[in-house]
Design a protein around this nucleic acid. Structure first.
Length: 107
DNA sequence: TAGATGACTAATA
DNA sequence: CTATTAGCCATCT
């Protein structure tokens, strides 16, 4: 699906130390209604290791909890290693870490 | 083909 | 901030 490919393209462009949300990706692609499909695209995860799904969180800044490459704690650790700080609840401060697609939107 | 499901979000209380 | 409801639409059964 072209939409899936666009999702992967965007996710792969997320720089280190930043995160984004499913809805944000959907909006970047011009289709804010398909927020769930973004989650679906990452769930499919056709290129594990290439697509940094761990940098995609829900709108609260929380990890999604189901990803496809190792474990929730591993995901959190990867993000922490990139400089992202979690609060006591395991929540990311999106005000600080939300990625702005200034460096390369899909087409 | 139809109905249920889901890595979601926005609105409302 | 959280909890619930409705809308969304590709995928699964």
């Amino acid at each position: 699906m072209a939409f899936f490919d666009d999702v992967y393209r965007v996710v792969k462009q997320i720089p280190r130390g930043k995160v984004t949300t499913y809805g944000q990706i959907a909006r970047i692609l011009g289709q804010p209604t398909k927020s769930k499909i973004v989650g679906w695209a990452l769930h499919s995860n056709p290129e594990p290791g290439v697509i940094p799904c761990h940098r995609v969180v829900n709108r609260r800044g929380e990890l999604s909890g189901s990803f496809a490459f190792g474990g929730l704690e591993v995901q959190k650790k990867l993000l922490q290693d990139e400089g992202i700080i979690f609060d006591q609840s395991g929540i990311i401060d999106l005000e600080k870490y939300l990625w702005k697609p200034e460096q390369g939107e899909p087409n």
